[in-house]
Amino acid sequence: MRPGAIHTHSLRKSYQGMRAVCGISLNVEAGEMFGFLGPNGAGKSTMISMLSTLLRPSGGRALVAGIDVRDDPKEVRRRIGLVFQEPTVDTDLTVRENLAFHATLYGLGKHDARRRVAEAADLVGLTGRGDTLVRTLSDSMRRLLEIARGLLHEPGVLFLDEPTVGLDPQARAEIWEHLRELRHRRAITVFLTTHHLEEAEYCDHIAMVDRGRVVADDSPAALKRLIGTDRIHLRTGDDQAAAATLSDYLGLASAWGPDGLYVQVTDAATAIPWVCTVLRVPVHSIEVRRPSLDEVFLRYTGRTLDGASRPEVSL
């Protein structure tokens, strides 16, 4: 097993008879950006707590960076970085003091600590803010500080529990920009939980979890392929003629709606040039709808991620 990888086998956790995680088996390769996607209460935080040795599993096995979380929790803790869902920076200390505090807890020498504090601050764009009191930082900067802190001791695995929860879209985009930058610069496994679909799209590998069970486990693209095809939404000057042309020339069946034509194709990017070439009627607009992870989740659980049970599915 390569350092940095995570492997679990039917991992379980119950609280007083309530089953929060019911037998999860996962294989996260070293260096992957792994997304654990599910609605609130699906067992995501419980899973992270078990993998980071803060919770003892009720059953099953979990290896993190090659070490069993039950056999040697201390060694696991040394090899992981953890960013909690709730803020855990000390707001009465400065950025540098927070980082230095963490460096000492992880046994870094003074010289080493100073270098790594500077590196970590640079990685998340906090250079030059070393002496700022954390109380005066914006929410997204505090989050970035926590990520920097989690990286300080150069862990093989970084756990991020809902890294963008409670942030506005602009701050979310900023966090993600830094996470992508991190992956460029360091060979690190990132295990993150999220209930945002667009965040799951950034991952190499996702597992969808619902009520303590994994319902789907693959790359985002592969999961979407299961759902099938892209849909092209066309608005033309004469929908009837357009439908006939598409059927005659390209063999494409189209559905007729009040607001235009819907055509199912395997790959919209290659189909659109053909569609435009054969059509002899004016085309007002072309819109592509790719299968979304929400639809994948819906297919496996009968619910969408935000909890609606029977959403209206167009087409």
Binding site: S52, L54, F84, E86, T88, V89, L105, Y106
Partner: peptide, 13 residues
Amino acid sequence: EAGFLREMLVAPV
């Protein structure tokens, strides 16, 4: 409850 203790507890100390 606020979490700073958790950050200390997850450290190998």
